[in-house]
């Protein structure tokens, strides 16, 4: 694997830092009741998985995920302004204020959305991948899958379909240890989730340290190349959610476990690596961080100043007209 240049690593640092800042801001705004609703699932802790995996794609490739979707949208390059506006239910949001936190999407970025029915987006990924094969485009689909989704029927049916139709899908399981509140070893007979690949005779890419953006990138790149030429591949990325299942969780009492994972925080891991590699680079990190913080502040301002949707928005796009 060729060494990744500093410019690329700094860009990944920027993206991960952006996601963290964006999510921290969402958390604050939720507590201030500027973001409302019952559902918001923050990506804090997962940054290396989202950024590393999405970095392995071409712009023409496709990305789809579940409801913990803010970080994936940002990693795909969607502007934080309409994302923040969507959180606040504004008309300028990516989904016009009709989707909310769990239903972000951007067609122009080939980001096909966040989906809130566990496993529901998996067959959608298979269908999008079918179009790639059907029209011989050689694009691939990267489908993020929560560990909890591996136990519902959608996982079995969609992954099996990808196998029998040789679809160019990379199934990336984000194993953060819990499906809502249930630990993986309570929910899954086989806790090494990547081994599910064996059942479908698809490429098993094994487990990757989901806190290390370079490792995630490398394994996803291999999986994407494989999917482009041959067929489906499956990765299990080991990570952790810092803010619990969702913002409306009543308590999050796994503080010891959280502290342990924060020792290998994905942003810290990359920072350490960069500084070890090149002492001077620390100088370059601060301006990146300042720029990101300004960008997030601008996004909040944009969202706050945006109009709320109106009656015509309520009734539009139920059907395609004409």
């Amino acid at each position: 694997m060729a060494e990744i240049d500093n410019a690329t690593l700094l860009e990944w640092y920027r993206q991960m830092f952006l996601i963290r800042q964006f999510e921290n801001q969402c958390d604050v705004l939720y507590k201030e009741k500027k973001i409302t609703g019952v559902y918001m699932h923050l990506y804090s802790g997962h940054e290396a998985t989202g950024v590393g995996a999405v970095a392995a794609l071409r712009p023409s490739d496709h990305v789809i995920t579940a409801y913990r979707d803010h970080g994936i949208a940002l990693a795909r390059g969607v502007d934080p302004k309409p994302l923040m506006a969507e959180m606040m239910g504004k008309r300028t949001g990516v989904s016009g204020g009709k989707g909310g936190s769990m239903h972000l999407a951007s067609r122009e970025h080939n980001f096909w959305g966040g989906y809130a029915i566990v496993g529901g987006h998996l067959p959608l990924a298979a269908g999008i991948a079918l179009e790639c094969r059907y029209n011989n485009t050689d694009n691939v689909v990267l489908c993020f899958v929560g560990d909890g989704a591996t136990n519902n029927g959608y996982f079995h049916e969609a992954v099996n379909l990808s196998a029998v139709w040789d679809l160019p899908v990379v199934w990336l399981i984000e194993n953060n240890g819990y499906g809502m509140g249930t630990p993986v070893d309570v929910a899954s007979g086989q806790t090494e989730l990547h081994k599910r690949a064996v059942a479908y005779n698809i490429k098993d890419m094994g487990r990757v340290d989901g806190q290390n953006v370079i490792d995630v990138y490398n394994v996803t790149k291999k999986a994407v190349d494989y999917a482009r030429k041959k067929g489906p591949a499956l990765i299990e990325s080991m990570t952790y959610r810092y803010k619990g299942h969702g913002v409306s969780d009543r308590s999050y009492d796994k503080l010891a476990e959280l502290a342990e994972w924060q020792q290998k925080d994905p942003i810290l891991v990359l920072q350490r690596y960069l500084c070890q590699k090149d002492e001077c680079i620390e100088e370059e990190l601060k301006p990146i961080e300042r720029k990101v913080m300004a960008e997030v502040a601008e996004a909040v301002e944009f969202a706050e100043n945006s109009p709320v949707p109106a009656y015509e928005d309520l009734i539009s796009n139920v059907y395609v007209e004409g």
């Binding site: 067959p123 959608l124 298979a126 269908g127 999008i128 079918l130 059907y134 959608y154």
Partner: peptide, 10 residues
């Protein structure tokens, strides 16, 4: 579900 995805993709 796959039919939905294929339709979304064109």
């Amino acid at each position: 579900g796959a039919a939905v995805g294929a339709a979304m993709a064109g």
